[in-house]
């Protein structure tokens, strides 16, 4: 994939910084299913990660920001425009002009080619100048390395290629808010790295909101993040702040083969990784206190937490 800097420099230097702020935002689905509970969150320009387990409410929040769902209560402003439940259609349309959205499962017409599909989306986004529209489509096809297969029908594309078409359609209108929901799910490692790099390059003078349950994706791309669980924000801040909270809580236990780390039976110890090293087995664990080795041969050492450790520690704390 080509470097995006020449293709999508976000918006002009004069445009005011993009901000999303929400306060007390809740969403209740039919059947009294509460997907979001009093979410207070401020998101500023750059890459922002939204992390949480499946069913945490990430997709609901993304769909509210994209204008697909309306919040049940609370206030929401995007670039200073009210997007709360009672906001006007005019406001919603204004926000949609700023938006690029890549859903987890991108809807496409399988019988259109990538070029046709992008042209159709560009028209629906209101790009009525044929020359500019075609130039933009070609530019983005090249950016996502699909120019050579652009006339092939979408039903013949692999998952990774479809995802690239998805990001291209989201970028057609040079959005100031780019929302990507689980963009790397199901991609092979190489394609995933390529996709992460692409997203990182986009987070200049715009918000790129990345929702995922893959911690590594956030670790590699975002400066700030929020962790969502059971519809509530459990953490918001920088990656460093989240990692710092787990300082002194991550341990490496080296035990003879067959040995298992001892817990107190109250679930105060979480095993992050297990590695068999011949006569020994190494456990990476998160624990509030230094864990006890079950035998005298065992060794315990405190280690630097990773983002994944910090995430597990945070989720344990919230139980």
């Amino acid at each position: 994939m080509r470097n995006l800097q020449t293709v999508a420099p976000a918006t002009s230097a004069q445009t005011p910084p993009m901000t999303i702020s929400m306060s007390g935002l809740s969403k209740v689905y039919r059947g009294h299913i509460q997907a979001l509970r009093n979410v207070d969150l401020t998101i500023e320009q750059g890459m922002f990660g939204l992390l949480g387990p499946n069913g945490a409410g990430k997709t609901t929040l993304m769909r509210i920001l994209a204008g697909i769902l309306r919040p049940t209560s609370g206030t929401l402003t995007i670039a200073g425009i009210d997007a709360s439940r009672s906001s006007s259609d005019r406001n919603r349309t204004q926000i949609k002009r700023l938006l690029g959205y890549l859903p987890q499962e991108l809807g496409m017409y399988p019988d259109l080619s990538a070029r046709e599909f992008l042209d159709y989306i560009a028209l629906l986004k209101g790009m009525d100048n044929k020359q500019q529209r075609q130039a933009r489509v070609e530019q983005l096809l090249e950016t996502v390395a699909l120019s050579e297969v652009a006339n092939r029908k979408l039903k013949t594309y692999s998952g990774g290629m479809k995802r690239r078409v998805g990001i291209a359609q989201a970028l057609l209108n040079d959005p100031r808010l780019l929302i990507v929901d689980e963009p790397t799910a199901g991609l092979d490692p190489e394609e995933r790295i390529r996709f992460r790099n692409l997203l990182s390059e986009l987070g200049g003078n715009r918000i790129v909101l990345l929702s995922t349950h893959i911690v590594e994706d956030v670790a590699q791309t975002c400066q700030r993040l929020a962790v969502l669980a059971n519809g509530q924000v459990r953490f918001q801040g920088t990656l460093g702040e989240l990692v710092a909270a787990a300082q002194g809580k991550v341990w490496l236990l080296t035990l003879p083969a067959g040995g298992r780390p001892l817990g107190d039976g109250n679930g105060e110890l979480s095993v992050i990784a297990t590695q068999h090293l011949g006569a020994q087995v190494q456990y990476r664990v998160v624990s509030e206190r230094e864990p006890q080795a079950p035998t005298r041969d065992g060794q315990v050492a405190s280690i630097e937490p990773s983002l994944e450790d910090a995430y597990v520690y945070l989720m344990r704390e919230q139980r």
């Binding site: 999508a8 420099p9 002009r97 017409y109 046709e116 159709y120 209101g126 790009m127 100048n129």
Partner: peptide, 20 residues
């Protein structure tokens, strides 16, 4: 900056939906 219209052209969108 990219020459992209910030206004939505409903006739263009209608034409797109019709054509495709």
């Amino acid at each position: 900056q990219l020459g992209i219209l910030n206004q939505t052209s409903q006739p263009a969108a209608f034409g797109g939906a019709f054509r495709y």
